[in-house]
């Protein structure tokens, strides 16, 4: 039975050693940590908020909390990255609430601006189309896909970040991927041409 994810072990948490050095102000550790996590934090926040400026403000706040937490973090509770993902999502949710964005499964209709069948797509255009399609997914579906596919968290880690069961995560992923297939059907043929 796969139900609620078990608590994550921090025994092999790759961030713990860095946190000790960060608390001492070690610039190499700080830079290593930032290189490891800043892009992922912004990427996740951007996928949730669909706005780069807001995502960067969230990332800034996440890192302020990281710097504050570093000296007192107690290994054994959770992986530090899981905590960071949770903080990121919570800050995103706060912003969305403030903007009165609905956290349900409603999402805006696609504008009919997809490329025509004969229109070639360059890679950047394709990326834009895919990101646009992801942005049209309900928020929890796009979070699930971002965590599992883009950030390559395991199903257990992603479920823990989202504070849902693995079954619920699987359902979000399946629904999200089905919707993406529908949204991206016009681009599927173009993708096959890339790299050939």
């Amino acid at each position: 039975m796969r139900a609620t994810p078990s608590p994550e072990s921090s025994g092999d948490d790759p961030d713990i050693a860095l946190l000790v050095e960060i608390a001492r102000g070690d610039s190499f550790a700080i830079r290593t940590f930032v290189d490891r996590h800043l892009g992922r934090t912004v990427g996740l926040a951007n996928r949730v908020l669909r706005n780069q400026a807001d995502a960067e403000e969230v990332a800034q706040e996440v890192f302020l909390r990281v710097w504050k937490q570093a000296p007192t973090w107690e290994p054994g509770r959770a992986q530090f990255a899981t905590w960071m993902h949770r903080v990121t999502l919570n800050l995103c949710y706060d912003r969305m609430r403030k903007k009165r964005e609905v956290l349900g499964d409603d999402f805006p209709e696609l504008e009919d601006d997809a490329a025509g069948p004969g229109e070639a797509l360059h890679e950047k255009e394709l990326a834009a189309r895919v990101n646009e399609a992801i942005a049209r997914l309900p928020v929890r579906q796009r979070i699930a896909i971002t965590l599992c596919h883009t950030q390559e968290l395991s199903n257990i880690e992603a479920a823990a970040v989202m504070e849902i069961s693995v079954e619920a995560l699987e359902s979000l992923l399946a629904r999200g991927r089905r919707k993406l297939k529908d949204l991206l059907r016009p681009q599927a043929g173009e993708l096959l041409g890339i790299g050939q």
Binding site: L38, G39, R40, T41, V42, G43, L44, N46, R47, Q52, A55, E56, A59, E123, L126, A127, A128, R129, V130, N131, I134, I145, T146, H149, T150, Q151, L180, L184, Q187, A188, L191, I194
Partner: peptide, 11 residues
């Protein structure tokens, strides 16, 4: 297709 669309990076 998902791989072709990485998330936004930090400025």
């Amino acid at each position: 297709m998902l791989d072709a669309a990485p998330t936004a990076d930090a400025s």
